[in-house]
């Protein structure tokens, strides 16, 4: 049995968190699985928890200074259904678990869980999202890409909570999403690819390609993105195989119960090829 805190406000939540070290608990859809035991037995939680999923002040979507700001405890269902949500994020959430879990799960939970297979994280990283962290000491904003540092590891301080996800609105951007799950629905990712790019006058002016479940963290290859930026589309089409290969060499997938490293490498490379085709109108 552990202490379970049910704060009425964010302020109270921060107090509980900083004074007791309670672990943030959003929808619970990861924590309750990891520490599950058996019917009639309490979950084996190793630490106190502070419940956050009910905090209305962290449930919103609104535009601010060219960015979409999403309250960290907004349920995945509400994020997915909202008109302001970018299509890439909608697609990614739409393929996460199933409605009942999406009604509980939140972006803060998916981010805080820091799984390399986190589908919303993959899309958010391709969208250059950052997150706001709050503590009694104040607030800071960090790039999501830098927030997660390893499987299950983040730079969240002991007294901090994730309060907001900030997604820049890429006017005129094009996006592409593909999840290869263990089945067609209600599945975990074997790998996923999120891409977001912009083209001006046949020149690629912006590109982000994020790969999920093929490395210890959701992976972006900035060097390849930098090389592609500024290239003319036909040139990218010409370098298709080379670019696919560079991605293939950059990823370090593992064998696990869901798939094999060899498959993840091959499929990721093929899917990068599909992104490039979509980009350049090839194939």
């Amino acid at each position: 049995m552990v202490d379970v805190y049910h704060p009425k406000t964010l302020e109270e939540a921060l107090q509980f968190r900083s004074s007791t070290g309670a672990v943030p608990f959003s929808g619970g859809t990861d924590i309750m699985v990891r520490y599950r035991t058996s019917h009639g037995v309490l979950p084996d939680l190793p630490w106190p928890i502070v419940l956050l999923g009910h905090l209305k002040e962290l449930q919103y979507l609104r535009l601010r200074k060219g960015s979409l700001c999403i309250g960290a405890e907004t349920t995945l269902t509400d994020v997915m259904d909202h008109e302001l949500t970018p299509p890439l994020l909608k697609q990614a959430i739409g393929l996460m678990a199933a409605p009942a879990l999406r009604n509980l799960g939140t972006l803060a939970g998916n981010i805080g869980n820091a799984s390399p297979a986190g589908d919303a994280v993959c899309a958010l990283i391709a969208l250059d999202a950052s997150i706001e962290l709050a503590s009694p000491r104040g607030r800071r904003v960090v790039s999501l890409d830098l927030f997660i540092v390893g499987p299950g590891r983040t730079i969240l301080a002991e007294d901090e909570l994730i309060t907001e996800i900030i997604v820049p609105i890429g006017e005129g951007h094009i996006s592409w999403y593909k999840k290869v799950g263990t089945r067609r629905a209600n599945a975990l990712s074997k790998l996923s690819v999120s891409a977001d790019w912009a083209v001006d006058d046949n020149v690629l002016t912006h590109v982000r390609i994020a790969l999920g479940a093929v490395a210890p963290v959701v992976l972006r290859c900035r060097d390849i993105e930098d090389d592609m930026t500024g290239m003319k589309l036909p040139e990218i089409a010409l370098q298709r195989e080379d670019l696919m290969n560079r991605y293939k060499c950059s990823i370090t997938p593992i064998d696990d119960q869901r798939s094999s490293a060899a498959y993840r490498k091959q499929a990721a490379s093929n899917l990068v090829g599909a992104v490039l085709d979509e980009m350049t109108g090839g194939r």
């Binding site: 699985v33 089945r183 067609r184 629905a185 209600n186 599945a187 119960q257």
Partner: peptide, 22 residues
Amino acid sequence: ELKEGRFYQNTLADYMIPTSLD
């Protein structure tokens, strides 16, 4: 699959039966 005599896919998150969308 078996790994050292144990089933590797031992949860419904890993042992995949068809859903309504498969």
